[in-house]
């Protein structure tokens, strides 16, 4: 009896649950398919694959172009992850906690959010032209700056969400106990923001590691990242090499995501 009324009260039938199930199938089928195909021994896999082999992983990891691109991507990703998080922390402070006026803080938030609502292709093209005009040209520096710009709204709002929840009276308590502003920041603010800062580092890394369009416009001929390398090969055709490379790229990002999901809130 109770059970019946409870079900009736829930309403909307099974539709939402079915959609969730279908979505999970939709989201994970391609990943599983590409993982399966990457084990094919043939250069042009057929479905089903005729045997199991890791030879294409060996091929990818001994391919100097791919390995160079991988290290470039990792390097740019790490710089972007930490730089973007520090800038994001500064931005979050400015938006959430600084004594600047409400209007100023709102304007800062809008400017930081710019990459979200301006089409990436426009931003990327604009940065490319501006970079050429001021003499930065193309290469590592514009790419890193472009990535920092691209991850900034994500890191800022990720950290700001946690910063906003942080009890302002904790820093008042610390000051009351003799801490100066720097000490309050080091002993209270940073430890309490720590999970958000770590999540920000990881997510910024993933965003940068996977970024394609901005890099495409700013890299010039000297810099090749993994997404550029893969995109170039995709246009030529689907191959077993590409499948193994794809799986490796997914693994790197999934590791970052996995670490992030283990972060616990301390409070």
């Amino acid at each position: 009896m109770v059970r019946v009324s409870r079900l009736a009260e829930r309403g909307a039938g099974r539709l939402p649950g079915v959609v969730v199930a279908l979505t999970l199938v939709f989201l994970y089928t391609p990943v599983l398919v590409i993982g399966y195909l990457s084990l094919s021994p043939a250069g042009q896999p057929t479905i089903p694959i005729d045997g199991l082999s890791l030879r294409w992983y060996t091929a990818v990891l001994t391919d100097s172009r791919f390995v160079r691109a991988l290290f470039t991507s990792l390097g740019i990703g790490i710089v972007t992850a930490f730089g973007g998080t520090m800038l994001g922390l500064a931005g979050a402070y400015a938006i959430v906690r600084s004594p600047l006026t409400r209007t100023v803080r709102r304007s800062i938030a809008v400017v930081i959010a710019l990459p979200l609502f301006v089409p990436t292709v426009v931003v990327a093209f604009g940065i490319g032209r501006a970079s050429a005009l001021v003499g930065f040209g193309y290469g590592y520096l514009p790419v890193v700056l472009g990535h920092l710009f691209w991850v900034l709204p994500f890191t800022t709002f990720l950290i700001a969400a946690r910063y906003g929840e942080l009890d302002d009276r904790l820093s008042a308590a610390a000051r009351d106990l003799g801490a100066d502003n720097r000490t309050v920041f080091v002993t209270v603010t940073v430890p309490l923001l720590w999970p958000a800062l770590m999540a920000s580092v990881l997510f910024a890394f993933a965003l940068s590691f996977n970024e394609f369009l901005i890099t495409f416009f700013l890299a010039g001929s000297g810099v090749t990242t993994v997404p550029l390398e893969i995109f170039g090969k995709v246009r030529i055709g689907a191959t077993a090499f590409l499948n193994a490379a794809s799986v490796l790229v997914i693994v790197v990002s999934a590791v970052a995501a996995g670490v992030a999901s283990t972060l616990r809130r301390p409070v």
Binding site: L114, V118, F149
Partner: peptide, 30 residues
């Protein structure tokens, strides 16, 4: 809040500068 506004402007300045330099300036250029 002794250090006050100057410090806060400096902190806010770094991300805002990046966003302006790579968000607004390129649009003006375009």
């Amino acid at each position: 809040d002794t250090p006050g506004r100057v410090r806060d402007w400096l902190i806010a300045g770094s991300p805002v500068l990046l966003a302006l330099a790579l968000g607004v300036f390129p649009l003006v250029t375009l």
